[in-house]
Lab assay of single mutants.
Amino acid sequence: KLETFPLDVLVNTAAEDLPRGVDPSRKENHLSDEDFKAVFGMTRSAFANLPLWKQQNLKKEKGLF
């Protein structure tokens, strides 16, 4: 399991300012399950079932792209 970080560490943070080991294209993977659901309004599995373009739009909207 990946290390999780608080939302404010990941949202609207440039790649070079992210904690070590965080993939800038997969910031959402480093949210706790609770934060993930609070941000996206759905579970990880529901998010994973969305088309890629919709996932990317949601990530942009939430500052996690």
Rank of each mutant, 00 (worst) to 15 (best):
K1Q: 04
K1G: 08
K1H: 01
K1R: 06
K1F: 09
L2K: 15
L2Y: 15
L2Q: 15
L2T: 15
L2I: 15
E3D: 05
E3A: 11
E3R: 11
E3V: 14
T4N: 06
T4K: 08
T4V: 11
T4P: 06
T4Y: 13
F5M: 15
F5L: 13
F5D: 14
F5C: 11
F5P: 14
F5S: 12
F5I: 10
P6Q: 09
P6T: 13
L7S: 06
L7I: 13
L7W: 05
L7Q: 09
L7H: 10
L7A: 07
D8I: 02
D8Q: 09
D8F: 00
D8W: 07
V9Y: 12
V9D: 11
V9C: 10
L10V: 06
V11N: 07
V11F: 04
V11K: 13
V11A: 12
V11M: 15
N12E: 10
N12R: 07
N12K: 07
N12I: 01
N12M: 10
N12G: 09
T13W: 10
T13L: 08
T13A: 11
T13K: 15
T13V: 11
T13M: 11
T13N: 12
T13G: 05
A14D: 06
A14W: 13
A14Y: 03
A14R: 14
A14L: 12
A15I: 12
A15C: 06
A15G: 08
E16I: 05
E16Y: 05
E16C: 13
E16W: 03
D17L: 08
D17I: 04
D17T: 06
D17S: 10
L18I: 08
L18M: 13
L18D: 09
L18Y: 04
L18H: 03
L18W: 05
P19F: 00
P19D: 05
P19M: 05
P19S: 03
P19N: 02
R20Q: 14
R20D: 13
R20V: 10
R20I: 12
R20P: 13
G21E: 09
G21A: 11
G21K: 10
V22E: 04
V22S: 03
V22G: 03
V22K: 05
D23L: 05
D23T: 03
D23M: 02
D23I: 09
D23G: 02
D23K: 02
P24Q: 08
P24F: 04
P24E: 11
S25P: 03
S25C: 10
S25Y: 13
S25T: 13
S25N: 15
S25I: 06
R26S: 12
R26P: 06
R26V: 10
R26W: 09
R26G: 08
R26E: 10
R26D: 06
K27W: 07
K27Y: 07
K27T: 14
E28T: 02
E28R: 02
E28A: 04
E28M: 07
E28H: 01
E28F: 02
E28G: 03
N29P: 02
N29G: 08
N29W: 07
H30F: 10
H30D: 04
L31H: 02
L31W: 00
L31I: 06
S32V: 05
S32G: 06
S32F: 01
S32Y: 01
D33F: 01
D33P: 08
D33H: 05
E34D: 08
E34G: 10
E34Q: 12
E34S: 14
E34I: 08
D35F: 00
D35R: 01
D35H: 05
D35Y: 00
F36N: 00
F36Y: 04
F36Q: 00
F36M: 03
F36W: 05
F36E: 02
F36T: 01
K37Q: 13
K37T: 09
K37A: 11
K37V: 14
K37F: 11
K37M: 02
A38K: 13
A38D: 12
A38T: 08
V39R: 03
V39Y: 06
V39H: 07
V39C: 13
V39K: 07
F40A: 03
F40T: 02
F40N: 01
F40I: 05
F40M: 06
F40V: 02
F40S: 01
F40D: 01
G41E: 10
G41K: 14
G41I: 01
G41F: 03
G41Y: 00
G41P: 00
M42K: 01
M42F: 04
M42G: 00
T43Y: 03
T43R: 07
T43M: 04
T43P: 09
R44G: 01
R44Y: 04
R44V: 02
R44D: 01
R44M: 05
R44C: 01
R44F: 01
R44H: 07
S45P: 12
S45N: 13
S45Q: 13
S45W: 06
S45D: 13
A46N: 11
A46I: 08
A46G: 10
A46S: 11
F47Y: 07
F47V: 01
F47W: 11
F47E: 01
A48S: 10
A48V: 10
A48D: 14
A48I: 09
A48Y: 11
A48N: 14
N49A: 14
N49V: 10
N49C: 14
L50I: 06
L50C: 02
L50D: 04
L50N: 00
P51T: 02
P51C: 01
P51S: 07
P51L: 00
L52W: 11
L52A: 14
L52Y: 09
L52H: 12
L52I: 11
L52E: 15
L52P: 13
L52V: 14
W53M: 05
W53C: 11
W53V: 14
K54A: 11
K54I: 09
K54G: 02
K54V: 10
K54Y: 08
K54L: 10
K54N: 08
Q55M: 02
Q55D: 00
Q55A: 04
Q56G: 05
Q56D: 14
Q56P: 00
Q56T: 10
Q56K: 10
Q56V: 13
N57T: 10
N57Q: 15
N57I: 14
N57K: 14
N57S: 13
L58H: 02
L58I: 13
L58F: 06
L58N: 00
L58W: 02
L58Y: 06
K59G: 00
K59H: 03
K59E: 04
K60W: 07
K60T: 08
K60Q: 11
K60N: 06
E61C: 08
E61W: 03
E61I: 08
E61N: 07
E61V: 06
E61A: 09
E61R: 06
K62E: 04
K62T: 10
K62D: 00
K62F: 02
K62L: 07
K62Y: 06
G63R: 05
G63M: 06
G63S: 06
G63V: 03
G63H: 07
G63K: 07
L64C: 04
L64H: 01
L64W: 06
L64R: 04
L64P: 04
F65P: 05
F65I: 15
F65M: 14
F65C: 15
